[in-house]
Design a protein around this nucleic acid. Structure first.
Lengths: 220, 220
DNA sequence: ATGTTCTATGAAAACTTGTTCACTGTCAAG
DNA sequence: CTTGACAGTGAACAAGTTTTCATAGAACAT
């Protein structure tokens, strides 16, 4: 995915924050006002760039209507496989389920409104409530993480970011995405399954981390 | 909360479904087309009614801009208490976190589009995917349900509906909301704590069920 | 019977919003 | 030194959208 410029990233962040807070998208003029542009066309250009880079999808002609690109799209496989079961590349980010808890005191960037809703991430990552993270949910297939109490059929909430030693991460290995605990030993990095029946450590040369598992959703 | 008419409920359902699917609200004309109204004013009237009844909030003049009301607002208390920690009555329902999995085959009411994203409830209640339920999340306080693997600090997803014997429900007892397992013995109904240290059964004469706990969200 | 609510039509007004056109400037890469 | 990506101004247009006005039948409770 192409890199975003600082301005583009800021605008995208604002838009997502606006949705998380207000539950609807900002208009071009809302964005213009936020960034104090003198012309709507400044915004227009950035939106075009965001769309060209594939992180935002505009619905031509429709007001306040956007979609954002999925963070990770993966094939399926055996073992503990995280499968993208969506119908196509049109997966939607966006929004929050109604969460009543742990509301943020102040969202410094989006001050105008009072009624603030914590996104689904709020109860999970108490630390990062200032911006709506590009979290996404994935269904877990397989049982290689059962010792971490993540079972087949559970849903994990993945949040992009730089993982620390001990984090459970969604990682790309040989083109496949799997859920493992990240282990750093000196200069070496491993992936560890949390199941006595699985090989403990997977040596890794090249590693693509798609995100950190922040919480797990289990059926009752 | 005032009762909605069938038409009003259908329109609200459609709107919420549209958001879950497209990630942005429908315009009045979208709704008009969906229900084959000859006039936009038919929709307009229903939206006014929905707002008057407190389930929908419109942003005057803004296109495709709405908020929906919270489903349940509760006070706090001791024991296994479900607390509404939100700032005020302005909590927002709406939307879904990006979920990639278990896509519904057909949503009979919202047939026009193909790319469908399951809402957060989809992975939880495999049975009820036809409409976006008015689910909400609550933080659990206390440990009276630890034997059901629901711990202090966990978040439960509550879905309105009629509970069966054995369901874990959010119930109003003496004006307080608590999380318990519903037990029906003959004509009697009890609430059972899932913790050996708590009294097993709470006899109930009058019982208000606010919803059924469908899943639990745990931090990793 | 009478008022109220729900439902709806049809047309137009008023406003919001996305889009386009013409033009300027900076900065890094080739 | 030109080219291209990036960032922006200013004005105007076209389309999308909400909102208002006038009108009316059906169901239902008082």
């Amino acid at each position: 995915m192409e890199e975003l410029t600082k301005r583009q990233a800021a605008i995208l962040e604002y838009m997502k924050g606006h949705v998380a807070e207000h539950s609807y998208w900002p208009s071009i003029r809302d964005i213009q006002a936020k960034f104090r542009f003198a012309s709507t066309n400044a915004v227009f250009g950035h939106l075009q760039a965001l769309e060209r880079k594939g992180v935002l999808q505009r619905i031509p002609g429709a007001a306040r209507a956007y979609k954002v690109a999925p963070v990770a799209v993966v094939e399926d496989l055996s073992e503990t496989i995280i499968r993208y079961e969506g119908p196509d590349e049109n997966a939607i980010l966006l929004g929050s389920i109604p969460f009543m808890g742990s509301i943020a005191a102040g969202l410094p960037d989006y001050t105008e409104s009072s009624g603030v809703v914590a996104s689904m991430q709020a109860p999970i990552t108490e630390g990062s409530r200032r911006r709506a993270p590009q979290s996404f949910a994935l269904r877990v297939r397989g049982d290689s993480m059962i010792d971490a109490d993540i079972q087949d059929g559970d849903t994990v909430i993945i949040e992009p970011g730089h993982p620390k030693h001990g984090d459970i991460v969604a990682a790309l290995i040989d083109g496949q995405t799997t859920l493992k605990r990240l282990v750093k030993q000196g200069s070496k990095t491993f992936l560890k399954a949390e199941n006595a029946n699985y090989p403990d450590l997977v040596p890794v040369t090249e590693l693509v981390i798609q995100g950190i598992a922040k919480s797990v959703v289990k059926p009752i």
